[in-house]
């Protein structure tokens, strides 16, 4: 009867797979939504439509990558929407004053703006030990306010942005939108990093069990600080890309984005209390939400439905994760009991 300890039971091994296949589930959902929309509207599979499906969520994906790192460490970054807005305006303003500015400087400037915001977040959260929710909520307001002071009622208009930069937001290379390439690169790089390097694995350790992480010699403060830096930097880069995509920025650009991004991340299977989830999953989460959005439009269902669907999907996603966890727990308890009964 000792075998039951060594051998996984059927139910628990299935559930184990369900855990690992979390990302797979989202991919299937995306395919399903895509298929349904295609039935309703055959033009959904047109090149233009698919390009739109891919490039539309690019900026959100970029932000979701950073947010994922922060949430994995058991924190949250609510300031990213404001960071995006600030960065977009700063880059736009730089173009207004320096018309010939190279594109890479524009992207770098945006990233630096975000890095600075992330630096402040990270310092206060990691070293002053203030809960991230409060800090980044405060920073959401402060950055938005600074943005408003800078904008001061003006607006960046497309005519002041060089075409080469706008092309970044609309052109494709080999049929793939440049925005998608950038977001995809970020996802791939961070997926690789998060799987491959010790400091990155520390993020998971911190979120999974902070106390045990300290015992394992993980430098918790430094890692949390880093997570906020990266989140800020990516939001800053996202701001620059936002400018490229829309070519116009007011003082409200990106407001409310933070909760969309958190929603995408959670739908993507990242546990809101840290420790598990992947960058890839979060990216798929963002892709899924956007695909639903587009599919509703294509199916000529009023686009008013998409928010409600997204909200319901988020609830289903967390309820499902919880259900799987409970099932596993129960299976293990009963399993153990039956093994001690039988002896």
């Amino acid at each position: 009867m000792g075998a039951s300890i060594f051998k996984k039971t059927k139910s628990s091994s299935f559930l184990l797979k369900a855990f690992q296949l979390r990302e797979m589930g989202i991919v299937i959902a995306i395919v399903l939504v895509f298929g349904l929309a295609l039935i309703k509207n055959s033009s959904f599979a047109s090149t233009a439509s698919i390009q739109q499906l891919l490039s539309g969520p690019s900026v959100v994906i970029l932000l979701a990558v950073g947010e994922t790192l922060v949430i994995i460490t058991k924190n949250v970054d609510l300031s990213i929407g404001s960071v995006l807005g600030l960065s977009a305006y700063v880059v736009g303003d730089l173009f207004v004053h320096h018309q010939g500015m190279p594109i890479w400087i524009a992207l770098l400037a945006g990233t630096l703006v975000g890095l600075l915001c992330g630096l402040i977040n990270g310092l206060i959260v990691a070293y002053a030990r203030v809960p991230a929710l409060v800090v980044t909520l405060g920073m959401l307001y402060i950055i938005r306010g600074v943005d408003a002071l800078l904008v001061n009622g003006r607006q960046i208009v497309p005519s002041s942005i060089p075409n080469s930069f706008i092309n970044l937001g609309s052109n494709s290379i080999l049929g793939i939108p440049i925005l998608t390439l950038i977001a995809g690169a970020a996802v791939l790089i961070f997926t690789y990093i998060m799987r491959t390097f010790r400091p990155a694995r520390d993020f998971y350790a911190i979120g999974s069990n902070t106390e045990a992480a300290v015992l394992a010699g993980v430098r918790v403060q430094r890692r949390v600080f880093t997570a906020f830096l990266i989140s800020g930097a990516l939001a800053g880069l996202g701001g620059a890309l936002w400018l490229a995509e829309f070519a116009t920025v007011g003082s409200t650009a990106g407001s409310g984005y933070e909760l969309n991004v958190v929603a995408a991340v959670v739908v993507g299977g990242v546990a809101i209390f840290g420790g598990s989830g992947t960058v890839l999953g979060a990216a798929f989460g963002a892709l899924l939400l956007n695909t639903i959005d587009q599919a509703l439009v294509a199916s000529r269902v009023s686009s008013f439905w998409n928010q409600a669907v997204a909200g319901a999907l988020l609830l289903v996603a967390i309820a499902f994760d919880r259900y799987v966890a409970l099932k596993t727990e129960l299976a293990l308890r009963v399993d153990r009991f039956s093994s001690s009964e039988a002896k």
Binding site: R198, R201, D202, Y204, A205, A212, A216, A271, S276
Partner: peptide, 20 residues
């Protein structure tokens, strides 16, 4: 024991000093 519930058994054993 206090383990990292979200990480693999191997990683629990080698956290912070994974072979490189």
């Amino acid at each position: 024991p206090t383990l990292f519930p979200d990480l693999s058994v191997a990683e629990n054993i080698f956290m912070g000093r994974q072979p490189l």
